[in-house]
Design a protein around this nucleic acid. Structure first.
Length: 184
DNA sequence: CCCCTAACCTATTCATAAG
DNA sequence: CTTATGAATAGGTTAGGGG
């Protein structure tokens, strides 16, 4: 059951660890650009030691990366984050459909979805996290009382429906179906 | 069998494109 | 401006794999 739900555990080499720790010490909150650079640095390092086991890296492609840092006054600003990903209606449809089947997709499923809609797997993971925290897990509103909670808060974690049932190619030309409002 | 810690998770907050 | 939602952070839990 489940089988390979997680990505296999990474074993960092001493050199990689050194690079990371060193980077952390001088910048505990690296921005997107720095993280990308570190990923490359670590990977080449790895490739140098081991032949090549995982050509798979991060998606360095992505759109451009032009950080126009131009704040003369503030010298110590937070580094830029990854630019916001904009999903098309089609991509969202695919994601939402997968979500209704399984809100907790394993690495295998996420990887496939990523490939299918053409974004890095990490974006798929983030999407699911956001989706769960906003439309799945019961959200506590600011009101102290008054908002009644109906049952529903349990057994959310073991929906183990077999994925992979999707017959791809369906591609129905229908509405995006972005329903499921949280009511408020 | 146990320990370390990567991989995950939720909850909250920050940020930004769309309206 | 407000809304919707992607990205980052804090902090806790789960489980892979080496000793």
């Amino acid at each position: 059951v489940v089988t390979n739900y997680r990505r296999s555990r990474t074993k960092f080499t001493d050199d990689q660890l050194k690079i990371l720790i060193d980077a952390f010490n001088q910048k505990p909150y690296p921005g997107y650009a720095t993280k990308q650079r570190l990923a490359l640095e670590i990977n080449t390092e790895e490739a140098r030691h081991r032949f090549q086991k995982k050509p798979e890296c991060e998606e360095v492609s992505e759109s451009s990366q032009s950080h126009g840092q131009g704040h003369p006054g503030k010298e110590n600003q937070r580094e830029a984050r990854r630019s916001r990903t904009c999903y098309s209606a089609t991509q969202l449809h695919t994601l939402i459909q997968a979500f209704t089947k399984d809100p907790y997709p394993g690495i295998e499923c996420r990887e496939q979805l990523a490939k299918e809609i053409g974004v890095p797997e990490s974006r798929v993971q983030t999407w699911f996290q956001n989706r769960r925290s906003r439309y799945y897990t019961k959200k506590q509103k600011r009101e102290p009382d008054e908002s009644l909670e109906q049952n529903q808060g349990q057994d959310i974690r073991e929906s183990k429906v077999s994925i992979e049932g999707t017959q791809n190619g369906a591609n129905l030309s229908s509405d995006p179906l972005i329903s499921l409002k949280p009511e408020r």
